[in-house]
Amino acid sequence: MSKEYRIELPDEASMVAFGAKIAQATQGHGVIFLLGDLGMGKTTLSRGVIRGFGHQGSVKSPTYTLVEPYEVNGKHIYHFDLYRLSDPEELEYLGIRDYFDEQALCLVEWPDKGRGMLPVADLVLQIALLGYGRQLSWTPQTALGQIMADKLMS
């Protein structure tokens, strides 16, 4: 895993467009962790992914609901935001295991807050500040993630 996967995204539009590319690369399966501080654009990127599957409506921040489910064209997408979670054990009460079946795509913001209760991510995406734009880098952690990572570079 020595290869470095990285891209510069100058604005919101390019972030959303890259989200659509992620949608394509995953085919609607797998677990993706989204890392980055408040205001980095994790929800914006998630919106790009979910819209990438053909979702027309809004993509609300799941901060207050912890998870927002979507069903688009037969694909199930779960958008998590664990920002408010104080103890990973809370996830057990949410029935977390039911979400991570192979039929769905799970996008997880603030996965650190759920450490120990979450499955291994196929892909870990990190968003960082680069001037007023963003730098996106990603690391595959499974064979499925490796395929996704390469597709995202092409």
Binding site: G39, S58, V59, K60
Partner: peptide, 18 residues
């Protein structure tokens, strides 16, 4: 109409954190 992403109160809370 509604907020398409963060609720206004959530934006306040997060701005505070920043």
């Amino acid at each position: 109409g509604e907020s398409l992403d963060d609720a206004a109160g959530e934006a306040f809370d997060k701005a505070a954190k920043m």
